[in-house]
């Protein structure tokens, strides 16, 4: 296991050091004192584990393909942007566009997330990306979603607080969103409908809850104690009739 002190390092220097270590066979790397350095893990293809202490900057794990990253702190915008494979575990909150256009891999977030999370998420052959959020989500959750799964848990939700913002899943045309409890129908985009999860969904949710609970030292039974609402698109071609041919 290697340790890198990221204090005062420019992101280009830090990322080059990370790449060099991984290229030379390092399979477990701890980054200390990370403070806003961007693009950590961007385009990295190795199978390795990266532990981040502090707050990584924007586009953490962008275009990533295989790494496991665990962040002991918050993360910023664009976590897992266009990610292909790998796992990201965040012991705090993340900001906007987490998982933008993510095609594969998994992101687990203990806290809340910002706007447009899971936007344009995709699925492809055996790739089925997953984002699990412990807290609340901002507006446009799952916008333009084309595949994969979003799971929103709303744990420790203060009374009167909504689990998701407005315009949930506008333009969604693939994949499924699972929300623990209910979501106000007025907050849903017109392209989606709320349905009850199937038995297969319940099985999958149990596995997801178990894994989530494991990462963050929670009890899976408590997470599963409330029933989930499933959101699916009406149609995989939401704009098919818009044009005059």
């Amino acid at each position: 296991m290697e340790t890198l002190n990221a204090r005062s390092l420019h992101y280009q220097v830090l990322n080059e050091s990370i790449r060099n270590l991984l290229d030379n066979g390092c399979r477990e790397l701890v980054l200390k004192n990370v403070n806003g350095q961007r693009y950590i893990g961007a385009g990295v293809r190795q199978q390795a584990r990266l532990e981040i202490h502090g707050v990584p900057g924007n586009n953490l794990a962008a275009l990533m393909d295989g790494l496991e990253i665990e962040v002991f702190g918050n993360a910023q915008d664009g976590v897992g942007n266009t990610m292909n494979d790998g796992t990201v575990i965040i012991h705090g909150n993340t900001a906007d566009i987490t998982g933008y256009s993510m095609r594969g891999g998994r992101i687990f977030i203990r806290g809340n997330v910002g706007y447009r999370v899971g936007i344009h998420m995709k699925a492809f052959q055996d790739k089925n990306p997953l984002i699990v959020i412990g807290g609340q989500a901002g507006d446009f959750f799952g916008e333009y979603m084309a595949g994969g799964n979003l799971v929103l848990l709303g744990l420790d939700l203060p009374p009167g607080e909504a689990i998701a913002g407005n315009f949930v899943a506008t333009g969604m045309h693939g994949g499924a969103i699972f929300i623990r409890g209910q979501v106000d129908p007025e907050r849903l985009g017109k392209e989606v409908k709320a349905v009850a999860p199937t038995a297969a969904d319940q099985q999958r949710l149990q596995e997801i809850a178990g894994e989530f609970a494991g990462y963050f030292n929670l009890e899976a039974e408590k997470i599963l104690a409330r029933p989930f609402t499933k959101l699916i698109p009406y149609n995989k071609r939401p704009y098919g009739t818009m044009y005059a041919y």
């Binding site: 586009n59 095609r103 333009y144 098919g240």
Partner: peptide, 27 residues
């Protein structure tokens, strides 16, 4: 394209990670 067969391939008008020159720099 790495998407399922037969679904519309929607390219949104903006990149959702670009709302400014600073954001463009990040991409």
């Amino acid at each position: 394209r790495m998407i399922p067969e037969g679904t519309d391939a929607l390219s949104p008008a903006p990149h959702h990670d670009i709302y400014s020159i600073e954001d463009l720099k990040q991409l």
